[in-house]
Design a protein around this nucleic acid. Structure first.
Length: 504
RNA sequence: GGCGUGUUGGUCAAUCGGUUAAGACGCCUCCCUUUCACGGAGGAAUGACGGGUUCGAUUCCCGUACAUGCUACCA
């Protein structure tokens, strides 16, 4: 049987780190097994619909290089891929369950349910949920006569269809990561399968669609584990047990400080992105930073995510996507959640920058440089990138570390020059600047040789003028070797900067 | 509260009964660099607790603690 996996997000906002990792694991598994990777949009909750979220999710996948084989826009043999467009398909299965005595109609209003919960919460040992004991006192097709039920439906009374959980049955499933996990059916409530608006809930939709789309392996977050018994039962009740996918519940990604699931809020609070790309909330216009805009390379981002909860056992940390495809194994995924470490994430990006050729890097860095209003010549940019990549961790660093190559910098550390300034230095720099203008060849070596000559002539220590020289050219105490900088910005500009600095 | 899941340094983590308990990030020291990084060499730092099983437990089992997830007509 052909391997088929799916990523099934709900289009309600930005795409979280954990979501991308789920996509990644799906993708790797599909590729490694010659299978299909499906993107299915789980938009059954119309009240949570967010405009643009679906497109945004697809854009994120494209940026990461994790494109689905089948999706709402790409199509495929199992169209449609949006659950809202599949609405009409679910009722029959819900009815089939009712007919088989595995589900029932429930007419309770939200207020009535809330009332029931309130009463049961008073009793410490009660479950306060719609289950095998409480369903006997609620308004549903189990407590009403068949005629009453039919009448209510005929009258257009809103109803939902709930699964009828069996009593005292142990439901066991084998998780690819956790092994056998079992639950007591009595402790699971009668989940709503079909909502009053005719839409299925996630529970029905995920089973029906996974069956219809012939999904063979289902990866999802650990937060779904408690409802897994409902899904297992549904596969059984619908008569599809043989076709049930193999489950894998992925560990959670935790916040760096304290504990708990990593949320968008933690990113804002601690100053790092949580979403793959910038997300603008269409209602509030609030922008949440993304890894892309913060200057991560997609390959580094993906590599980092792969290592968050998985390793190949050898200690290797840098993997190309192709390598991941061949080496990834779901069995080696960790059971426990991992705290997200932004410092480590940055390290990955630094590694990728070092391993990327200068021309490619120049293209990646360009938008972050142009964001500052300059548009350097491609050849120059490539040289600059090569000179400063060592000290760049994120793409915007190419501007921070290299802006002085593109425009005369503002001197921000003037004190370094002025504090110990004297006649001797004045003479040295004036003389050297003039000498530079007559230099036969403009190489870093020649520039330095000239510098050394003048240092000797002036009778001062090289160390006394090196740093001031750097400040004149760069503006601050950073950057690559001074003579390499002079070489690249050219004779005229070098002389201009030195004279400009002396003059002021 | 109930149920599920998890627990090796600050963080990510290797180990599939016997090791001086890898490696990486971060941190500290030194070297390199007349800037800052990069790089190099060192260093500090780990099996939650209590019982078993075993010749021997980080590893297997049971408790406890702690953490976390879920307990919606949300996914």
């Amino acid at each position: 049987m052909k391997v088929r996996v799916r990523f099934a997000p709900s289009p309600t906002g930005g795409l979280h780190l954990g979501g991308v990792r789920t996509v990644l694991y799906n993708y790797l598994f599909a590729r490694a097994n010659g299978g299909d990777f499906v993107l299915r949009i789980e938009d059954t909750d119309q009240s949570r619909y967010v405009a643009g979220a679906e497109q945004y999710i697809m854009d994120c996948l494209a940026w990461c290089g994790l494109q689905p084989d089948e999706s709402p826009v790409k199509g495929g043999p199992f169209v449609p891929y949006r659950q809202s467009e599949r609405k009409s398909m679910y009722l029959q299965y819900a009815q089939q369950l009712v007919a088989a005595g595995k589900a029932y109609y429930a007419f309770d209003t939200p207020e009535e349910i809330e009332q029931m919960r309130k009463e049961h919460r008073k009793d410490e040992h009660s479950h306060a949920q719609y289950d095998s004991v409480t369903r006997l006192v609620m308004r549903n097709s189990l407590t009403l006569t068949a005629a009453e039920t039919e009448q209510l439906i005929a009258n257009g009374t809103p109803y939902v269809i709930r699964i009828k959980m069996p009593e005292h049955t142990t439901i066991t499933l084998t998780d690819m990561i956790r092994g056998e996990v079992s639950f007591d059916s009595s402790l699971v409530d009668d989940k709503v399968l079909l909502k009053a608006d005719g839409m299925p809930t996630y529970h029905l939709a995920v089973v029906v669609d996974d069956y219809l789309m012939q999904i063979t392996h289902a990866f999802r977050g650990e937060e779904w584990l408690p409802s897994a018994p409902v899904h297992v039962l549904l596969w059984e009740y619908l008569g599809w047990k043989e076709k049930m996918p193999l489950w894998a519940h992925l560990p959670l990604i935790l916040k760096p400080d304290g504990n708990g699931k990593l949320s968008k809020r933690d990113g804002d609070r601690l100053g790092f992105p949580v979403f793959a790309m910038n997300w603008t909330d269409p209602k509030t216009n609030e922008v949440t930073k993304g890894f892309r805009e913060m200057g991560f390379m997609p390959q580094a981002f993906v590599n980092m995510l792969a290592m968050l909860g998985w390793n190949d056992g050898t200690g290797q940390e840098l993997f190309s996507l192709e390598e991941l495809v061949s080496k990834f194994s779901i069995e080696r995924v960790h059971k426990g959640g991992a705290k997200f470490d932004f410092e480590k994430a940055k390290w990955f990006n630094h590694q990728y920058i070092q391993h990327t050729d200068d021309a490619t890097l120049a293209k990646l860095a360009r938008p972050f440089i142009e964001a500052n209003g300059v548009s350097p010549d491609e050849e120059l940019l490539i040289k600059v990138v090569g000179l400063i990549k060592d000290r760049c961790t994120l793409l915007p660093d190419f501007w921070a570390q290299g802006h002085f190559f593109f425009a005369t910098p503002e001197i921000t550390e003037k004190a370094v020059i002025t504090e110990k300034w004297n006649e001797q230095k004045q003479t040295f720099f004036t003389g050297w600047a003039d000498a530079l203008a007559t230099l036969a060849t403009w190489t870093a070596e020649d520039i330095e040789a000239s510098f050394n000559d003048h240092v000797a002539q002036a009778g001062i220590k090289k160390g006394e003028v090196m740093l001031p020289c750097r400040i004149m050219l760069v503006g601050g105490k950073y950057g690559p070797g001074v003579f390499a900088i002079a070489k690249l910005i050219g004779m005229e500009e070098t002389v201009k900067r030195i004279k400009g600095a002396i003059g002021s």
